[in-house]
Design a binder for these strands. Structure first.
Lengths: 240, 240
DNA sequence: GAGTGGTCTAGACCACGCA
DNA sequence: GCGTGGTCTAGACCACTCT
């Protein structure tokens, strides 16, 4: 007599999930050294090869950092790495932009319909809204509106001035790891607010980037709308 | 006495390159079955594990297709796979667009400055230019100008009507495998030509996508400029 | 049942970083 | 020189596909 067959799950995927769980739960903090592969193999009762295969996946997901001769570390979202990983704006000549911010304001207010829809929350949910301008060579190139639920990031306004890459703050202060973003791009015309922030005239073309940040556990924790002056910059990406 | 030390190259990377070379040279055609891992291991004088690791990389690069129980095949760019892999336009509600073409024209003429610059060729190099309109639900949403060197794709005009995904044609008829694209996005205003092709009014916002296609050997073989009506579609992508 | 890719193990050795 | 991750091997067994 046979019972219901469980779907087949390789051992290394279970190891992988166990490791993610232990990292998310804070057993090892960002930047910390993990036990060696041999030690984990002994501890978890599998061979080193199986630990390796699990860690290969974690490395691909950028959850850990492996350094030959030194060890394996929980990935840390440093400013440089984080900024370049998710910030895709380039100068017209193709060089990368290191964004700097101007005119930052943070306020607590009910979440708007568009952000709420994208984050799967109810309109009016208490949220922090961060408005800032992105500068390149002291020229404003983009105007950003970032909205996060207050419940997920309490007292966000206390951390002002905010870092250029908010994801580093999310990780450091809230233990929340953003691992991917969904982006939607459209063209639009410059409205009155854009014109004021970007020093453009109404009716000029604008690139609008709508972004949702997703954590390692699949939660959508941040919504951002960027409106970019693409006469000063462009969005660049390689598809594979 | 020591001679110059060669930089260290793991065995599996050499196997990987050898396999790519044999595929590019046509020893196995797209869709064909490769020898089994065991057979290749014997043939190349390494262990099966090393063949596996090389093939893991080829699979990530989408150069081969592995199917448990059946074997390993040279990847074939089918219409469905190829279209979805590099075509990032979505409907306003987020559903994928299956592009269909209208008004296709192909002509042989000197390459323009912008395409030549992007492809690293001299302006005026003989080239085929493909103009077509992309339709969604019989509505024109994008106007595409695709330029390829005649030398790389001789008598391209004989293959009309062209498939929706040109990359499948490049692979099937010319043995050229596109494995990645570099894309640059900007916002612009609708000009007279756009207006004619897309049924818009001049001054409406447009999303411009400039794309360069790169082969497995790193050659830039195609330049494309798409001008999209983002009131009917948008560009969507997930960053990781 | 035969053959393929996929998993898992155990052990050896290599390249790297650091003290 | 030691400990770490990275490579390579050899062999066993599992899951899947087709005959």
């Amino acid at each position: 007599m046979e019972t219901d067959r469980q779907p087949y799950r390789p051992l290394y995927t279970q190891i992988q999930e166990a490791l993610v769980r232990r990292i998310v739960e804070g057993e090892w903090r960002p930047g910390e050294l993990l036990p060696s592969e041999q030690a984990l193999a002994l501890q978890m009762g599998v061979s080193q090869g199986t630990i390796r295969k699990a860690m290969d996946a974690l490395e691909t997901e950028k959850i850990i950092d492996r350094r030959q001769g030194k060890g394996t570390f929980v990935a840390e979202l440093t400013q440089e790495k984080s900024v370049y990983r998710f910030f895709r704006l380039l100068r017209p000549d193709g060089r990368r932009i290191v964004p700097t911010s101007g005119n930052e304001t943070v306020r607590l207010q009910p979440m708007g319909a568009r952000a709420a829809l994208a984050l799967g929350l109810a309109e009016g949910t208490p949220a922090f809204e961060v408005l800032r301008t992105r500068l390149v060579d002291d020229q404003p190139v983009a105007f950003e509106r970032t909205i996060v639920p207050e419940k997920v990031f309490p007292v966000l306004d206390r951390h002002s001035p905010l870092p250029n890459a908010l994801f580093t703050l999310y990780q450091r202060e809230y233990g929340i790891n953003v691992v991917s973003t969904d982006e939607r791009l459209r063209a639009d015309l410059c409205d009155e607010q854009d014109a004021a922030y970007l020093g453009l005239t109404q009716g000029a073309p604008l690139l609008e980037i709508e972004r949702v940040a997703v954590t390692v556990t699949g939660e959508r924790v941040e919504w951002r709308l960027s409106r970019c002056n693409t006469s000063l910059c462009m969005y660049g990406i390689t598809l594979t």
